[in-house]
Design a protein around this nucleic acid. Structure first.
Lengths: 217, 217
DNA sequence: ATAGTTTTTTAGTCTTCCCTAAAAAAATAT
DNA sequence: ATATTTTTTTAGGGAAGACTAAAAAACTAT
């Protein structure tokens, strides 16, 4: 049996590996799940005993095959529940994260597969993140970041990297949502801010915002 | 903050009070939640400190107003989730209990109220148990037990007391479900077994089964 | 290369919730 | 009324998962 806490560590490692090097540091995990490095070390030993991670002292950590499947499954549940909350209940995309953090730990294969079917097998969650299938396979995201784009390029907003409440509220306020067509009007060399056109309106977004937006060209 | 374990104790006390005397014994709670009497004593002290139960050593325990509201809320969540699983996903009434045991601890007022609305404010769960409203109020059940009934009486199956997997499977096998019309054909004085008519078929049920069936006349 | 800094681990504690064993109180039986 | 049984509580301890403080290892910079 994998505990809730163990699932959270596996998930954190999974995400950190995905967005960076092949091995994850103790500190990085501690930061990610708001705990102390010493707690992380404790847990890594436990996960290593269970053969869910490959861990050697001072050498960082990565997931084993078994660990990766469990992590992907937790992420699958998280994202499916998010879709459920937004599509079937009246939640907006900035409200679902904390609830999905709880729901992702509900243990029942059948439940999550029924939810999947009930939602008609969505491929992405409300933030544009791909949903792993029941074997832990996940589609590659080939959307491109707004910072890597030239004036005149256009595409459809497909993914937001930062799913924090505050960032999603910013997007709401500026009428930016997944699926909207975005055209790059101008890029300011001084601060890398970008003027874009969305729904026939032009707005300027900072480099920091652009960093978190991805479009399909 | 009320922990999951505390919620389970409050729920157990709520159920035991409902079906019996005004005060609940340590042993009764231990039996209900499959733990030891000493663990129960520990927890009762903690709940008493939080003013969720009235507890005096050796005197049994009952819920305070605050405790009762929390317990009713957990039960509300449990039953609404059961309705969701049966009505919206493809679960049968004998599969939902264990999953609802997990889901009942998800913390979000908004979530459960949205679920309630999504289900169009059901009044009863799949086993015929009434669903408390968001203030913890619960309608009185005025269905009558099959053992208290005379030959010739008839009514609609409204409630099953035992929600165990094995009992519900027995009902499935014998084509008994909530909402079905039942007529009492004969009562055998020797063993109190009852011959009933359901859906134009006659079956004999034991006293033990009858004890768990309630109908609206 | 070595001194200083940062990261990681170890050692020891705390809280929650469970347990066993023994003591104390209450209930029951003779 | 007292002996026996049952119930409940206390005492002490274990596992999980967090923490602080200190030690050890690994980096970094001169």
């Amino acid at each position: 049996m994998v505990t809730q806490s163990e699932e959270n560590y596996l998930k954190a490692i999974y995400h950190l590996v995905k967005q960076g090097s092949s091995v994850v540091s103790t500190n990085a995990i501690a930061k990610k799940i708001h705990t102390k490095a010493s707690s992380v070390t404790d847990m890594l030993k436990k996960l290593a005993d269970k053969e869910l991670v490959d861990y050697k002292k001072y050498q960082g950590v990565c997931l084993t095959k078994k660990g990766k499947i469990i992590a992907a499954n937790v992420i699958r549940k998280h994202r499916l529940w998010e879709v459920f909350l937004v599509e079937k209940l009246k939640f907006s995309w900035d409200e679902v994260h904390d609830i999905a953090e709880q729901l992702e730990h509900i243990k029942s294969e059948k439940l999550i597969n029924e939810i999947d079917a009930f939602l008609e097998f969505p491929s992405h969650d409300p933030h544009g993140d791909p949903i792993p299938d029941r074997h832990g396979n996940i589609v590659k995201n080939n959307s491109v970041n707004l910072l890597e784009i030239k004036i005149g390029d256009e595409g459809v907003l497909a993914h937001v990297k930062d799913s924090s409440d505050i960032f999603l509220k910013y997007l709401n306020k500026n009428n930016l949502a997944l699926g909207y067509k975005i055209k790059v009007i101008d890029i300011e060399p001084f601060d890398s801010s970008i003027k874009i056109e969305v729904k026939a309106k032009q707005i300027v977004i900072s480099k920091n915002v652009a960093k978190n937006l991805f479009i399909n060209i």
